[in-house]
Design a protein around this nucleic acid. Sequence first.
RNA 1: GGGCCCGUAGCUCAACGGUCAGAGCAGACCGCUCAUAACGGUUUGGUUGCAGGUUCGAAUCCUGCCGGGCCUACCA
Length: 578
Amino acid sequence: MTRILVTSALPYINGIKHLGNLVGSQLPSDAYARVMRQRGHEVLLICATDEHGTPTELAAAKAGKSPAEFCDEMHEVQARIAEGFRLSFDHFGRSSSQRNHKLTQHLAGRLADAGLIAEVTEKQIWSPADGRFLPDRYVEGTCPNCGYEKARGDQCENCTKQLDPTDLIKPYSAISGSTDLEVRETKHLHLRQQSMRGKLTEWIESKTDWPVLTTSIAKKWLNDGDGLQDRGITRDLDWGIPVKKGEAEWPGMEGKVFYVWFDAPIAYIAATAEWADATGQDDQAWQRWWRDDKGAEDVRYVEFMGKDNVPFHTLSFPATMMGASDPAGERWHLVDYIKSTNWLNYEGGKFSTSSGRGVFMDQALDILPPDYWRWWLLANIPESADTDFTWESFQAGVNKDLADVLGNFVSRVTKFCRARFGEEVPRGGAYGEMEAEVTAEIAERLKAYEAHWDAIAIRRAAADLRAIWVAGNEYLQRAEPWAVFKTDPERAAAVIRFSLNLVRLYGILSRPFVPDASNAILESLGLDPEVASKDWPRDVGEALSALSAGHAFTVPEVLFAKITDEAREEMAARFAGA
RNA sequence: GGGCCCGUAGCUCAACGGUCAGAGCAGACCGCUCAUAACGGUUUGGUUGCAGGUUCGAAUCCUGCCGGGCCUACCA
């Protein structure tokens, strides 16, 4: 048994996420955690809402609420949607929690003590009309390079030139439109990543089994230009974690908060502490997952994220963890494997919040059950390249794989049994050569399924699972119990007994992808899903004899209703965007 | 501008220097009738973006070109 700590990148609080966000981190982290739990490992799956930063303040203001109120509400919304998709987080925390305040301040203090924090006076754009400093991106104006009039302060979208807000001609606030802008000096803390460049490089280069996408992004940042740069970890905002050095005030930093990207990854740890609090455990309970000096050394820590998150998880967060560690005292556990995913596009373009293009998580659940989305998204997860969501592909995947192959298998077996033998596992006959062959084939497929999950190759795992389902239909076709029944009912009984055991096996193996269907299958077999799903097959032969003659069952409702062409067309039209 | 990734059957993807480049979907044909008009079998379909090179051998490695995507540090 291994102890596996799994984190999903934190969804940002300012709105409901779309399917691309879901498939990028939350969904694969859940499926992976489920498989590993079912296989008997000790797993802790952690996620949280990422609540700080300028966009939150603006979104809250727009909604006429304080950031705290706004986040309270949006956290509840996101938590409900996560439940709707059956995301099995052990804890869904918040980056604004008191735990995260304390921990972020603590780690900043450790970094300062280690000499890894520099105080730097910077010039930033102040907008009196907005009453705030403006991040570069919130200053717009005319590009000095190409004359584009809505260039952003960090980069011109039109000519792609990198800019500084002070480069812009006729700059104005993107928030209020005010042209009354001034440059003010303000003091900020920088994490001295430059001094850790060697250590980080060595660490990244030791990760030879990581996806290319992950390491190439990290190496680029380490080596590009003058190499890894120090990074500001504080901001002039109201909403956030107040800058403190551990428990103590930080002279000169009054009224400032930590930068959202500094505190967000720390929230993985804080959310684990929140989990311990919520389950009535002591600090030891969460520290054994995160502190190598407190028993976390044998933990395998796996992070899931979209590719946009990679630099922060390969560099600044590890720099924080390394910098806050010392051999004789606190030692924080670094990530062991980073699974990064590409983008999911929508019908050949991007998902767009502003134009309502694409399907958002709440809408998805309004239309169809979570299993449908889970299956298609995981079977088509953008592992090696960006992937396109199309309604045709979605419809085909759901109808063929779920309804025709898995759902129909369960249906034909249980209904045939009910009609010929009644609603209990039939007695008589014995497994023969054909059953031995199918058992061997499934054992082989199962090995591949497990290996692909170990490697977090999710598309392949989905293909393996589908092949295991197909094996059941192939078997029935060969064994043809409906014909055999007429001359040799005992043989037909054995075939159906074997098939019902296949149904049970599918209920277990399919659970990471389609948990609701797994429940329905196992319950219809008179089993407790929570218990039965933990009975991951060690020996397929044994597993296919688990249900013995006389065991009662009921025929389940149709597991997956098909998506009709009309429904598909209607949905495609509805989500096409403005 | 710089960096990285990708380009394989109508579509979505495998094959990671070595038997006729494979699956699923879609198409065609056959079988079955237990089942959600479901299932199974057979089959059509590819000068692997283009042009060179390395090698006994290249989809795979190298160079150039064409096309697409992503990242580039203050949105997160």
